[in-house]
Amino acid sequence: MNIAVDQDKCCGAGQCALLAPEVFDQGEDDGIVILLNPSPAERFRAAVREAADVCPASAITVDLRP
C-alpha cells in the first residue's frame, strides 16, 4: 500500500489524523496533512482507505498494491 497526499488541496479537516493517527498528522496552525508513513503496514489498510474516502478535499490517494 502506497499513499500520496496533496498538501495544496488539503483543507486541514484532520479527518485522516483522526482515523489513522499512525499514518497521518497535521500542522498545528494550518492543519495541513503531514504524511508520517507513505507505505504503512497492511493492518492500517481499512483506516487509510476510510481516511481517503472521507477527506473533504480529496487530498489523499491510496494505491493498494503492495
Partner: peptide, 13 residues
Amino acid sequence: LGWNMAKAARLHR
C-alpha cells in the same frame, strides 16, 4: 471552532 489552530480544534472535536 478553530481559527488558525486546526489541529488543536480537531483534538477538541
